[in-house]
Design a protein around this nucleic acid. Structure first.
Length: 111
DNA sequence: GGATTGACGTCTG
DNA sequence: GCAGACGCCAATC
């Protein structure tokens, strides 16, 4: 029973994302030293079956809602992001830079 | 057990 | 600056 699986780490980080904040696969992957951003996407894919993880707050490096197609409804992701104050246009977050959240930042505060 | 795919990222052209 | 190809690591077929 490896509780310390890489996807559990991703769950923790994704759940720690504050409302109105957004993170990226590469940042999380780099922080968790997963070695590949794809691992993050994979973990989030399982997250739907595991627990309620705000995966809609996690987007690719371009700030694009790449995973919206995997949501129950392709519009759900955008709806949630807009509801949290994010400006989504053309399946891409306009104020992505402003809403960008880094796990290291949160860790720095905890430390 | 091998080959392909996958919610991505970085490099080269 | 944009487009295309390769690389990552794991799970699924």
């Amino acid at each position: 029973m490896k509780d310390e699986n890489y996807f559990e780490k991703v769950y923790a980080i994704t759940r720690l994302i504050p409302r109105g904040r957004i993170s990226t696969y590469g940042t999380i992957a780099s922080y968790l030293a997963l070695g590949s951003a794809r691992m993050v996407g994979w973990a989030l894919n399982k997250s739907f079956s595991e627990e309620r993880v705000p995966a809609h707050r996690v987007v690719n490096r371009k700030g694009e809602l790449s995973g919206r197609n995997h949501f129950p409804t392709p519009t759900l992701m955008q709806e949630l992001l807009e509801k949290e104050g994010a400006i989504v246009e053309n399946n891409q977050i306009k104020n992505f830079k402003e809403l960008f959240w880094d796990p290291a930042e949160e860790l720095d505060i905890e430390l």
